[in-house]
């Protein structure tokens, strides 16, 4: 179409009315193309708006029926149609907390290895490997967790933890109960493996963006590698790394399949990390297609709404911080 219009041009120049018509057509194409791209850009906003509206509309019956009790009770009884979201919310927060406490130190240490210590020839392969691993679908981690990791934990780590912390007063409740293999701790550990590549690759990008002059100046003063890292790289990169961590947290909170396989889907709040639990996304994935009755479905949609609000806030903070570091680097 476009080439056609141009190829027509030399012939059309000969007579002024033809030329005008051609110009008019070009202007029309130009204007409509601009409008179409504008509409496409707006459609991104429409998608987000649609998600919010659809979730609120779907959640309305449950929110009207239970009010604020929905957020503060942990009963989940499909037979009597009494629903409360506390247990899934608790599970989501605890599994993500476990994941982040493991993934963040590991991710930062690996990123430090990659930017400060790693020999040059090894940097690219390791970096690429980490980025490829970030793209592996979560269901792969889920199936691995169910068949390999959970039985392994059941026979080694969990009995050891029970023996180790059994006599200790407070920690014993944290590791009480029989080792099921599946449960909150297992889900948290799987999430940690999943989030690790995200945290590592963003931290590495931010560390690499530190101006070499700053580091060289510190080395010139006689600082050790660790001191340079601690007092030059970290202060410079703090905002960016926080952004990366929040991005990973957003992933962990919303992660569905890896968790659904190994959490055990039990609607209760247990003090023990070894006990089965549930998360918001695992509850929706497990129960949605089997949910009978409008109130049950609506309660699950309300869970989705809560999850969306939480992750939206976390991701918005993450993006804001990453934007700030991008502006700083220029």
């Amino acid at each position: 179409m476009v080439d056609l219009a141009l190829r027509d041009a030399p012939a059309a120049v000969s007579s002024p009315p033809d030329r005008l018509r051609l110009l008019g057509r070009l202007r029309l194409i130009d204007g409509s193309f601009r409008t179409i791209t504008f509409a496409a850009a707006v459609s991104v906003l429409v998608i987000l708006g649609g998600v919010i509206v659809a979730l609120i509309e779907g959640a309305l019956p449950a929110l009207q029926a239970f009010g604020l009790d929905f957020l503060t009770t942990s009963r989940w009884n499909p037979v009597t149609e009494k629903f409360g979201a506390l247990a899934p919310i608790y599970g989501t927060l605890v599994t993500s907390l476990i994941a982040m406490t493991i993934a963040v130190p590991f991710g930062i240490l690996i990123a430090m290895f990659l930017t400060e210590l790693c020999p040059m020839w090894l940097r690219r392969p390791i970096g690429i490997a980490i980025e490829l691993l970030a793209g592996i679908p979560s269901i792969i981690y889920g199936i691995w967790g169910l068949f390999v990791f959970a039985p392994f934990l059941q026979h080694t780590l969990q009995p050891a933890l029970i023996d180790l912390f059994g006599p200790v007063p407070i920690l014993s409740t944290l590791f009480a109960g029989p080792p099921y293999g599946i449960g909150v701790l297992t889900a948290g550990l799987i999430l940690a493996i999943m989030v690790l590549p995200f945290v590592t690759s963003i931290s590495r990008d931010v560390f690499e963006a530190v101006p070499p002059v700053l580091k060289e100046a510190a080395y010139g003063l006689g600082c050790t590698t660790w001191e340079v890292f601690r007092h030059v790289v970290i202060p410079f990169a703090r905002v960016g790394v926080t952004g990366g961590v929040m991005l990973g947290l957003g992933r962990a909170l919303g992660e569905t399949m890896a968790v659904t396989f190994v959490i055990g889907n039990a609607h209760r709040i247990s003090g023990s990390l070894l006990a089965p639990g549930t998360t918001i996304s695992a509850t929706i994935a497990n129960e949605f297609t089997e949910a009978l009755g409008d109130l049950y479905t609506s309660s699950l949609v309300a869970l989705g709404l809560i999850l969306f609000v939480i992750t939206f806030v976390v991701l918005a903070i993450a993006r804001y911080m990453l934007m700030r570091i991008e502006r700083k680097i220029g």
């Binding site: 649609g50 998600v51 659809a54 979730l55 779907g58 991005l247 957003g250 992933r251 909170l253 919303g254 992660e255 569905t256 996304s281 929706i284 994935a285 949605f288 699950l300 949609v301 989705g304 999850l307 969306f308 992750t311 939206f312 991701l315």
Partner: peptide
């Protein structure tokens, strides 16, 4: 990076 399960609900 929004949770994909929410997209399913939508």
């Amino acid at each position: 990076s929004a949770p994909s399960i929410v997209v399913g609900l939508f």
